[in-house]
Simulated assay, not measured.
Amino acid sequence: MGNPSTGVTTMKSLIQILVITCALLAGPLWAADSISISELKQAMQSGNTPIIIDVRDEDEYLAGHIPGAILVPAKNVEHHLDMLEKYQKEEIVLYCQSGRRASAAATTLENAGFKHVKLLDGNFPGWQASK
């Protein structure tokens, strides 16, 4: 029989590797920082409006959107990076209906070098409820 302490050490090492691997693969669900609706409204009222991007589909955007929001559907964000490049150093706020598409778009922008990407807490339903 082998040394029992060797098996324990090997098992601990395997568990550590597994935990680290899971953490790296999972990553944060919401990569970007967030901004509250009240913070966004305050910025808009003070003249410091960030770039607001609606990542919903066109029909959702046309049915209602945050004033001044630019429509860039989440499924097309990577195809519009050239157009968005001029905003790379500015604060960008993304929103959708539930947060899923905005989070995916935030990851795409962050991977392309955008440093000031935020997700709107409550997304569009929260904005509508705050009127």
Results as ranks from 00 to 15, higher is better:
I92Q: 01
P28S: 13
A112Q: 06
L14G: 15
E60Q: 00
V55C: 04
I92C: 12
Y61M: 08
A63L: 00
K131N: 11
D82S: 15
K115R: 12
I53E: 05
C96D: 13
R100T: 13
S38G: 01
P67C: 02
E78M: 10
A129K: 04
Q97F: 12
I53L: 03
A112N: 11
E85F: 12
K75C: 01
K131R: 12
A69S: 05
S34V: 10
Q88H: 13
T6L: 15
I53F: 05
A26E: 09
I52G: 07
W127A: 05
H79Q: 14
T21R: 02
D54I: 00
K41N: 02
E110C: 11
D121K: 11
G27C: 00
P4W: 14
N48W: 00
I53K: 00
L62G: 01
G64T: 02
V77P: 05
G64V: 05
S13M: 11
V19M: 07
N111F: 11
V117Y: 00
Q16M: 15
N48Y: 03
N123E: 14
A43F: 02
D121E: 15
N3S: 15
A32G: 01
E85C: 12
P67E: 07
K118Y: 11
I37H: 05
D57E: 12
H65V: 04
A63R: 06
L25F: 03
A102L: 10
E39Y: 10
H65D: 02
Y87T: 02
I15A: 09
A104S: 15
L94G: 04
L81P: 04
N123Q: 15
M11S: 14
I17T: 09
F114T: 06
A74K: 05
G2C: 11
D121Q: 10
Q45K: 11
D121G: 06
H116Q: 15
G113N: 03
P50Q: 05
I66N: 03
R56G: 02
I51P: 00
H116T: 02
D33G: 04
K75A: 03
G68S: 11
A69V: 08
K75S: 12
S36K: 07
S103Y: 10
M44Y: 01
L71C: 02
I53D: 03
I66H: 00
T108I: 14
G126Y: 03
A106N: 12
D82F: 10
E91C: 06
V8S: 13
K115H: 11
I20C: 06
G122M: 08
A23P: 05
R56I: 09
D33F: 08
L71I: 06
V8A: 14
Q16V: 12
S36D: 07
L18S: 10
P50G: 08
S5E: 14
G99D: 06
D57F: 08
A74D: 08
A112L: 09
L62S: 04
V55K: 00
T107E: 15
I52R: 04
N3F: 14
S13Q: 13
W30Q: 14
T107W: 13
T49R: 07
H116K: 15
A129V: 07
P73S: 01
L25W: 07
K41D: 04
A26T: 10
N123T: 09
Q97M: 14
F114N: 06
P28V: 04
L109S: 02
A31Y: 03
L25C: 13
H116F: 10
L24Q: 12
I17K: 13
R100Y: 13
A31F: 08
I17L: 13
T10A: 15
